[in-house]
Design a protein around this nucleic acid. Structure first.
Lengths: 137, 137
DNA sequence: GTGATTGCAAAGCGTTTGCACCGTA
DNA sequence: TACGGTGCAAACGCTTTGCAATCAC
């Protein structure tokens, strides 16, 4: 991941730490959350650098913004080329999933609506296995 | 629609106009856009009232927030109980569509991920028939 | 009449920008 | 050494809040 930073960008502490935090998080984080975590490792980091790193990572498609009912300011690492997300509504744990099962539906809606459909976002919300276990206690 | 306002809320000019604008719009509008349009009909309306009306309409499930790559501050009237949207990326025209074609996919992902899936959002992006015609000129 | 609603102004919050200093390549 | 990157402070834009005046019921 840091390799891709060598895409013209210099490797600095703020960038290294922001990337590391995002890469290791199972749930989407917003700028402020990243900043709080980053300060633990590198006290003099500025919130501004977090914003600027997020911006670059998003341009390089290394992270993507996650849309939830509560807000859409958090980012998750990893890009599959599709916006197929599975989000735990308890702990926020977010996974990607694959599947072209939508082709039939898309074809049907395209026909009915006369739209030429170019892209789709599918987000599933639920409870992950860890949180299911916690609930039963 | 105004009837549902009689859900305990008084019928005032700012509310009537905000509701009317949202109900008649084919594309999602944000608070500021509603405010601009509302001023044409009722010059002394305040932006604050638009925000407060949006808040109430959202609580009553008469409008819903629309999430797009460019932002998620716009609202569209109409609630189907499902977040199934079809959005034109040219003009913003937004339609709802129906379909339970997702059950199989959801069952599969549920099995593979061990998540209990409770809800889903599906948004299709494309070009509406009007914009297709404009493009060919 | 009275209490909900309004509009204004100010506060609040997340994000971006200007700028001088710093640190990577 | 050069210039990309940083952190601070200020600016910014959107949204919310406090409050007295207003208006629907």
């Amino acid at each position: 991941m840091e390799c891709l930073q060598a895409n013209g960008y210099r490797l600095t502490n703020p960038r290294r730490i922001t990337v590391e935090i995002l890469a290791n998080s199972k749930r989407p984080l917003n700028a402020s959350e990243i900043y709080q975590l980053a300060k633990e490792q590198y006290a003099k980091i500025g919130l501004v650098s977090v914003y600027r790193t997020i911006e670059k990572l998003e341009e390089l498609n290394l992270i993507q913004r996650v849309h939830k009912p509560e807000g859409c300011h958090a980012y998750i690492a990893g890009f599959t080329g599709h916006q197929h997300l599975l989000i735990c509504t308890k702990c926020g744990k977010t996974e990607f999933f694959e599947g072209d099962d939508l082709q039939q539906l898309i074809a049907r809606v395209s026909l009915e609506s006369n739209f030429i459909i170019q892209d789709h976002w599918l987000t599933l919300f639920g409870i992950c296995s860890d949180c299911q276990q916690k609930q039963s206690h």
